[in-house]
Amino acid sequence: MADELEELWKKLSFTNEEDANIVLGSGSTKAAKDRGKNCLVMKVLSSRSIMLDSLRKNLRMIWKLNKGVQISVLENEMFMVEFGDEKDKKKVLEMSPWSFEKQLVLLQKFKGEQAPKEIQLARSPFWVQIHNLPLKSRTGETGKAIGATLGEVLDVDVAESGVQWGTCLRVKVSIDVTKPLCRGKRVTIEDDKSRWVLFKYERLPNFCYKCGLLNHDLKDCPENLGPAKMQDTQNFQYGLWLRGDIISR
């Protein structure tokens, strides 16, 4: 509807009265800004329609909030989430990513300068496990360097010494979900020969084994594979092996 109106406006010739500019001061936005401090903008990364009642019920259950939450439709599967407690909002953000019906839920802090149709939710935090690193590279510096090639580094799971032994090195990264999942990288350490390090993603929702995108799964892939090819998962470039078990910090 908004796109149709925009196209209509382009064709219109405005009268002097219509073209007169209305100047709105800070007083006109204060109430919305104050309420927005406890709000998040949310989108479910799905090609299917979202049932609002089901979404509300599911998120209230998994978020386990101290106080209530209101979820309102903004536009085109985009929602406003208003928390009754700022601590609840902070917890929900820190524990991201979340999913609804196995589809990724994107969350963004309230800013207010954009109309809903102008808001682009395209990033989500993930704990990424980096496998096949030599022991000498299980450091915070390594995590930051590799994580920075995936997106904005939010955290690295290392001890106070800056080193973390274990099955892998973990880094929390805000990744661009409009791109295919990155499966790994070639890394050269101290001028040694390069090696392939494998990435696994914790709490990874549905994604397409054909193209690696998070906005649909295999059966909804626009490439329209057909039933026979959908069963031949061994020839796909992506798979279950990208899912990492959740590791406690």
Results as ranks from 00 to 15, higher is better:
1 M>F: 10
2 A>W: 02
8 L>V: 00
8 L>D: 01
8 L>Y: 07
11 K>Y: 10
12 L>K: 03
12 L>A: 08
14 F>Y: 04
19 D>E: 08
19 D>R: 00
22 I>Q: 01
23 V>P: 03
25 G>I: 02
25 G>P: 03
30 K>I: 15
32 A>Y: 12
32 A>M: 12
34 D>S: 06
34 D>C: 00
37 K>R: 14
40 L>T: 07
41 V>I: 14
42 M>E: 03
43 K>Y: 14
46 S>N: 02
50 I>Y: 07
52 L>D: 04
56 R>V: 01
56 R>C: 02
57 K>F: 15
57 K>E: 11
59 L>E: 12
60 R>Q: 11
63 W>I: 13
70 Q>C: 13
71 I>Y: 08
75 E>K: 15
76 N>M: 01
78 M>W: 15
79 F>Y: 15
80 M>Q: 11
88 D>Q: 04
89 K>V: 12
90 K>R: 13
92 V>F: 03
94 E>G: 14
94 E>Q: 14
96 S>Y: 13
99 S>E: 14
101 E>M: 14
101 E>K: 15
102 K>R: 15
108 Q>G: 15
109 K>A: 12
110 F>H: 06
111 K>T: 07
112 G>H: 10
116 P>N: 11
116 P>W: 06
117 K>R: 13
121 L>A: 09
121 L>V: 12
122 A>T: 12
122 A>K: 11
123 R>F: 08
125 P>H: 14
126 F>Q: 07
126 F>T: 13
130 I>M: 02
134 P>N: 12
134 P>C: 09
137 S>N: 05
139 T>I: 09
140 G>D: 04
141 E>P: 00
145 A>N: 09
147 G>I: 10
147 G>H: 10
148 A>T: 09
151 G>D: 02
152 E>M: 04
154 L>C: 08
156 V>M: 04
156 V>A: 01
157 D>E: 02
157 D>Y: 02
157 D>V: 00
158 V>A: 04
162 G>A: 07
163 V>N: 09
163 V>D: 08
164 Q>W: 00
164 Q>P: 04
169 L>Y: 07
172 K>T: 10
176 D>F: 07
178 T>E: 03
178 T>L: 08
179 K>I: 06
180 P>Q: 02
180 P>V: 00
183 R>V: 05
185 K>T: 06
185 K>P: 03
189 I>D: 01
190 E>Q: 09
190 E>Y: 01
194 S>T: 08
197 V>Y: 06
197 V>W: 10
197 V>N: 06
202 E>C: 03
204 L>K: 14
204 L>I: 10
207 F>K: 09
207 F>H: 06
208 C>Y: 07
208 C>R: 06
210 K>Q: 10
213 L>I: 00
214 L>I: 10
217 D>V: 07
218 L>G: 05
219 K>C: 09
219 K>V: 07
220 D>F: 11
220 D>C: 01
220 D>I: 06
221 C>G: 04
222 P>H: 10
222 P>F: 13
224 N>M: 00
224 N>H: 02
226 G>E: 00
226 G>C: 02
226 G>H: 08
232 D>S: 01
235 N>E: 12
236 F>Y: 09
236 F>V: 06
238 Y>R: 02
239 G>I: 12
240 L>S: 15
244 G>T: 11
245 D>I: 03
245 D>Y: 02
247 I>E: 04
248 S>Q: 13
248 S>T: 11
